[in-house]
Write a protein that binds this DNA or RNA. Structure first.
Lengths: 344, 344
DNA sequence: ATGAAAGCGCTAACAT
DNA sequence: ATGTTAGCGCTTTCAT
């Protein structure tokens, strides 16, 4: 394969001039540029990215650490991030962490091998205290949870506020015994995560509505999966717990819950109403279609990449920033009943 | 950041010895190895991957070109491929092609810039003739369609056979007016793609069953999306076309169809039975749960990566190979009715 | 506007 | 078992 030297020779110029042409730098006479371009075409030359990286100390690739791409929410996010990164000429390499803290840490330290120019971490296993110690040997952006005062840029969901809105929506639809279904919550109040933040919003909404905060209505399941949601719903339906509304920590869990209630003979929304969080593509097409909180994934992805690019270009550039994404509440059949179409 | 030279100096050995330790090569005395490891730890040294790549002519990264990660089927595949590649110490960078041939070609030519050691292409837009011209400037494995006699290794689905089985299943359940719902099919018989292959299986099954092959029951929709499936189902329900079974080209389309029939007042499976293809995670949890063809994604991913790794290590190693993945037929509520649980 | 020299950090090949 | 030499292909710096 041709090198820059070969091109230089073929064009009768120096390698430097070829480099200047390749990188669109000024100070190249049009005639010279044309000679070079011809030689490049003739030899079918392509830059050797490894050599360029070595020289520049950049790799042109960012890492994206997610629990698993094969989950609607993270798939959606990954898709948006790949697109946003592409607009900056960056490739995205995905590391699956399985939501385990050691894998998340490994993904970050991968970056220290300089495989990545930066890392976007959709943290799910890291505790706040650990996250706060993220020594940025490489630029890092944390995405998805609100980690207050961390040392890195952060793109957050409006977890508390949106959860409050979701729960209030259930109240407005007439629910009085509203369950909250989430993952395991740490006893350490410092460890904020999706579950604890959304629980806070849920509790606030009950308070707002003057409903009793019955801790027995807060259920912790082990995994954020459809299977876990279905299992819970079957159990709940069987026990006739008197629940008339459920706020699920994610749409994926909510999908399982819909299935489990169907198995248990409870009708949604007539017997019990269900709302999720994420507005995954599938939600609009379920039967019944799923009401949910819709954060703006594209905006989140765009911001995360922007933050990261800025840090890559200027590693010591100012204080860590935080961006909280906007959201919509999407009311569908699972909370409103009736005949509306599944699409929003 | 420390270099290999720094480590060598600190350990009182040569850079080569450090390199030998790093790469687990033999001929290093345990005592020496320990000295080196100590120095590495002390200096917090990490290999510079760009330098190693330049030297080795490898990047340690493979490209995965998929239409979009945010589709259950491709997400599932990507997840499995990332895992399989990880076992070979390879990172995976994802290119989204949006199923357009120019983007698929671009992803392949990306590889010619030597960003990737090889590329796995989940082709959806490329025509057979184009695929056959894939000049392998870099190892390429095509995944998902049966491209006969192409110049590259190929991991295929048992499209025809599995579709035949799926359609036969509908026949066995008593369907007599079975529709086939697929994407646009080229008039060129050489352009085999998922739609045309699965249609072939569908037609064979009708033939097997002695049912008339009514071309008006073969519907082409523009996109493999839930929205397109829903749209079709609403129209069909409204027109009372007398369809009592539908074989959908993918689960995603089938999910839309379930929604559309619900909108149109048709009950599944009582009025019409529906079967899909892919066995996406969601399928088991829909209401009704979706019968489908379940190809073994993990095996497909593993094979694709194995093929690619072999080519990377031995670019001229023998004739192109083809592997056809095994599959299962998973009968759920959408074709069988009744009270079984959603999980398989 | 163009070129020459030097070196990024690593490892293959060849000593010792 | 360990060290020396050379060079992968590019770009930064400094000349011209």
């Amino acid at each position: 394969m041709a090198t820059i030297q070969d091109v230089a020779k073929a064009a009768g110029v120096s390698a430097m001039t070829v480099s200047n042409v390749l990188n669109d730098r000024p100070n190249v006479r049009p005639a010279t540029r044309q000679k070079v371009l011809d030689a490049i075409a003739r030899l079918d030359y392509r830059v050797n990215v490894a050599a360029r990286n070595l020289r520049k100390g950049r790799t042109g690739t960012i890492g994206l650490a997610v629990p698993e791409v094969n989950r609607p929410y993270y798939g959606r996010l990954a898709s948006a991030i790949i697109a946003a990164a592409g607009r900056h000429g960056l490739r995205v390499s995905i590391e699956q962490t399985d939501a385990r803290r050691e894998n998340e840490l490994a993904a970050l330290s991968q970056s220290r091998t300089r495989v990545y120019d930066g890392v976007i971490l959709a943290a799910a296993g890291l505790s706040t205290s650990e996250a706060q110690q993220l020594k940025a040997e490489v630029p890092v952006v944390v995405l998805g949870e609100r980690i207050f005062g961390g040392p890195v840029d952060h793109v957050a969901m409006p977890n508390v506020e949106a959860s409050r809105a979701a729960t209030r929506h259930l109240v407005d639809q007439g629910c009085r015994h509203i369950a909250f279904l989430c993952g395991a919550i740490s006893d350490n109040p410092e460890d904020v995560d999706v579950s604890s933040l959304r629980r806070t919003g849920y509790r606030q909404a009950l308070l707002d509505a003057g409903l009793p905060a019955d801790r027995r209505l807060e259920y912790e399941i082990t995994e954020f999966t459809m299977a876990a949601g279905a299992e819970w719903a079957r159990t709940t339906a069987a026990s006739r717990a008197g629940v008339d509304g459920v706020f699920c920590v994610t749409d994926t869990v909510a999908m399982g819950v819909l299935r489990g209630f169907a198995d248990g003979g409870l009708r949604v929304p007539q017997d019990v109403k269900v709302i999720g969080f994420d507005n995954v593509d599938e939600s609009a097409f379920l039967v019944p279609s799923l009401s949910t909180v819709a954060p703006d994934h594209d905006v989140m992805a765009e911001r995360a990449v922007d933050f990261l690019v800025r840090r890559i270009e200027e590693p010591s550039g100012g204080e860590p920033e935080e961006f909280v994404a906007p959201y919509d509440l999407v009311a569908r059949e699972s909370t409103t009943g009736g005949a509306q179409r599944g699409e929003r």
